Simulated assay, not measured.
Amino acid sequence: MNTVVHLSGPHRRGPDLQELVARVAFGDQDAFSRLYDAVAGPVLGLIRRVLRDPAQSEEVAQEVLLEVWRTASRYRPERGEVMPWVLTMAHRRAVDRVRAAQAAADRDQRAAARSHAPAFDEVAEQVEGRLEREQVRRCLQGLTELQRESVTMAYYRGYSYREVADMLGSPLGTVKTRMRDALIRLRDCLGVGS
C-alpha cells in the first residue's frame, strides 16, 4: 500500500532574493531584514573559513551586509543570482582583511628588524678586536721583561706609575723611562703613527 502525502498550500520555500534586493534598493528596511536573515548565515560561514577568527568574521560579515544595503541598487539580475553576488562580496572583503592583516604583520616585522639591527657589523667588529688583541700580545712579547711587567701593571691592571714603581721597588723616574721606551716600541710594532 502506497501512501501519498499531499502538501496543502504553496510549497514552503525561501524568500525571492531578487525581489528583496530590488526592494532594498528603494530603502525598504523590512525587505533588508528578510534578506539579512536569508544570507547572513552563508556569509558568516564563508568569511569564517577564510579568516578563522570568529570575532573578525562577525565584524567582516556586518561590513558585507552593510555593503549589500548600500549597493543593492547596483545588483543586476542578468549577471547572476543574489546569493553568489553577496558571497562574492563576502569573499573579497574577507580576503582584503587577510591581506591587510598580513601587510600590517610584515610592516611590524620590518620595523622590529630595523630597531634590532646593530649600528655596526658585530662579527667584523669581533674579528677585528680579536686580531688587534693578538697583535698587541705579539708586540708585548717583543718588550723586555721589565718593560712588559710595567706596561701590564699600568695599562691592564690600572696602577699608577708611582704604584708600579713601589711594587717593583724601582725609582719612579726609572719606571717612567721604561714605560716611555715600551710605549715607543709598542707604537712601532703596532704601526701606529706618532
Rank of each mutant, 00 (worst) to 15 (best):
residue 131 L to F: 02
residue 10 P to N: 00
residue 2 N to H: 08
residue 124 A to T: 15
residue 189 C to A: 03
residue 134 E to M: 10
residue 19 E to L: 15
residue 91 H to P: 06
residue 28 D to I: 04
residue 190 L to G: 06
residue 82 V to N: 02
residue 67 E to Q: 13
residue 171 P to I: 10
residue 60 V to R: 04
residue 194 S to C: 11
residue 125 E to N: 13
residue 81 E to D: 09
residue 39 V to P: 00
residue 41 G to Q: 10
residue 170 S to Q: 15
residue 91 H to V: 12
residue 41 G to L: 07
residue 101 A to D: 01
residue 23 R to Y: 08
residue 52 R to G: 00
residue 39 V to Y: 03
residue 102 Q to D: 00
residue 84 P to E: 04
residue 141 Q to T: 12
residue 28 D to H: 04
residue 68 V to A: 03
residue 164 V to L: 04
residue 19 E to P: 11
residue 63 E to L: 07
residue 38 A to E: 06
residue 60 V to C: 03
residue 19 E to N: 15
residue 161 Y to M: 14
residue 23 R to N: 11
residue 128 E to D: 14
residue 163 E to M: 15
residue 61 A to H: 10
residue 175 V to K: 10
residue 46 L to T: 13
residue 62 Q to F: 01
residue 48 R to K: 12
residue 142 G to P: 03
residue 52 R to H: 04
residue 118 P to C: 12
residue 106 D to K: 06
residue 37 D to C: 14
residue 180 R to I: 10
residue 28 D to A: 05
residue 139 C to A: 05
residue 181 D to G: 14
residue 82 V to P: 01
residue 41 G to S: 08
residue 117 A to N: 02
residue 192 V to T: 12
residue 4 V to F: 12
residue 158 G to I: 07
residue 35 L to W: 08
residue 26 F to S: 11
residue 188 D to A: 05
residue 54 P to R: 11
residue 9 G to R: 00
residue 150 S to N: 11
residue 136 V to L: 08
residue 4 V to Q: 11
residue 7 L to M: 07
residue 76 R to W: 13
residue 154 A to D: 01
residue 75 Y to G: 08
residue 126 Q to W: 08
residue 144 T to I: 03
residue 53 D to F: 00
residue 36 Y to P: 02
residue 99 R to Q: 00
residue 104 A to C: 05
residue 16 D to C: 08
residue 70 R to M: 07
residue 28 D to Y: 04
residue 137 R to M: 01
residue 142 G to R: 11
residue 177 T to Q: 11
residue 104 A to V: 09
residue 38 A to C: 06
residue 2 N to W: 10
residue 178 R to D: 11
residue 174 T to L: 13
residue 38 A to M: 03
residue 55 A to T: 11
residue 109 Q to N: 09
residue 42 P to G: 10
residue 129 G to D: 06
residue 22 A to S: 14
residue 157 R to V: 07
residue 90 A to Y: 03
residue 118 P to Q: 13
residue 63 E to I: 01
residue 82 V to D: 00
residue 177 T to A: 14
residue 174 T to Q: 15
residue 71 T to Q: 07
residue 150 S to V: 09
residue 101 A to T: 03
residue 150 S to D: 08
residue 142 G to Q: 08
residue 104 A to N: 07
residue 100 A to G: 09
residue 44 L to G: 12
residue 81 E to I: 06
residue 150 S to Q: 09
residue 172 L to F: 14
residue 176 K to A: 15
residue 167 M to Q: 04
residue 7 L to K: 09
residue 26 F to E: 11
residue 175 V to F: 03
residue 58 E to Y: 01
residue 151 V to R: 01
residue 1 M to W: 01
residue 158 G to Y: 02
residue 165 A to Y: 00
residue 12 R to G: 02
residue 9 G to H: 02
residue 178 R to Y: 14
residue 26 F to T: 12
residue 181 D to R: 15
residue 105 A to R: 10
residue 134 E to Y: 05
residue 87 L to E: 01
